[in-house]
Computed example of a mutant assay.
Amino acid sequence: MTTTLRPAGPGRDGVYSICANGRSVGGVHLTPLGPWGAGTGWILHIQVLPSRRRRGHACVAMLAAEEIMRGRRCTRMAAAVPEGNRAATGLVQALGYAPDSRRLAAPVRATGLPPGVRMMDPDERDAWCAAELHRCAADLRAAGWAAPVAQARAQARLDHPTAPAPYTLGEGAVVWVAHGVILALTAPTPADAATLLRAAGHVTATQGLHEVAIELPDDTHAKVCTGAGFAPRTRYWGKPIL
């Protein structure tokens, strides 16, 4: 039995059919663009028909996806796995992917900005973004990311020129939220982090959205996020494909 990937058709860029002996048994959606910046290929979604599972189709499809992304000059792969999906987790682990970060989300409501929280002015925003870019890239390099890929991921995280300015409590306590996603959260104390999370929730609610999400690359703010009602939704996995 031969498993291959075939383009799904015109107007469906990045969507491929998983074929076994020429017959479609599932599909996969790939993109060289994503929240980690240039150079990282994403497996956004993969599915195999229930009657064709446990036959290795998904494994072969993911290996083929890596070759496709390598051909598009990607040096790293990433996969988004729904929290609690054991089958998908086992697959990415078997293929050498390592856990990278986790996306959490919480419902929001407009309660007003907490006392002391204010929006940054333009000069503050520019200075903070420059410092945060350096800090984020340094943290990623320390975690084992190659310098160019770490820089690209940090840049993608902070490259939102049309997003509203970050909010601050002063003394390094900053939250930046846009379109229902917390782009950055820096806080010297758990109390500051909790206050800024409330601010992010209020801002998100005033935009007509029902929940706010955050990606946590480590456990620095995990406890305070859980206490604020955030629940895990997605685990991100990654590996180099040099």
Rank of each mutant, 00 (worst) to 15 (best):
A142E: 14
A146L: 14
W128I: 00
T162F: 03
G112S: 11
R109K: 13
M119W: 13
P122N: 11
R157Q: 15
A163T: 08
Y97F: 15
A138T: 15
S101H: 03
W176C: 07
P164I: 14
P99H: 07
P115V: 02
A105G: 04
A131Y: 03
A142M: 13
R135P: 05
L95S: 09
A163G: 10
D126W: 01
A147C: 08
A130K: 06
P99N: 00
L183D: 06
A163S: 15
P148R: 15
D126C: 10
A146Y: 02
T111W: 05
R125G: 03
R153H: 02
D100N: 00
A152K: 02
R141I: 09
H134A: 15
A105M: 00
A127M: 11
T168Q: 05
G170K: 01
A106K: 03
V181Q: 01
A106R: 00
H179Q: 09
R157W: 05
Y167C: 11
H134M: 09
A163P: 02
A154N: 02
G172V: 11
T168P: 09
H179N: 07
R102L: 15
A152V: 00
E171D: 15
E171R: 14
D121S: 10
R141F: 04
D123R: 14
V174F: 09
V117K: 00
G172R: 11
R118C: 11
A173P: 08
V174C: 11
V117L: 12
M119N: 01
A106Q: 06
A152Q: 05
A137M: 04
M120I: 08
P114K: 12
R157G: 06
L169I: 08
P99M: 06
D159I: 08
R109Y: 01
P164R: 15
H179S: 14
R118I: 11
A156K: 00
A110Y: 06
V175M: 08
L104R: 01
H134E: 15
V117N: 01
A173H: 01
P166S: 10
L104F: 02
L133R: 08
A138S: 14
R141S: 06
T111K: 06
A147G: 07
G96H: 12
V108G: 02
P166R: 05
Y97L: 07
L95P: 08
A143H: 10
A147I: 06
A138D: 09
T162W: 08
D100L: 07
P122K: 12
A106H: 03
A130F: 01
L169W: 04
L140C: 02
D126Y: 03
W128V: 05
R135G: 07
A138H: 08
D121Q: 14
A173M: 09
L113Y: 14
T162I: 04
L140W: 08
A150Y: 04
G116V: 06
A131R: 07
A173K: 01
P161G: 08
Q151A: 12
E132S: 10
V175F: 04
P122V: 13
D159K: 06
I182L: 13
G144D: 14
G144F: 14
D126K: 04
L133Q: 02
G112N: 11
L140D: 07
E171N: 13
L104D: 04
Y167L: 15
W128S: 01
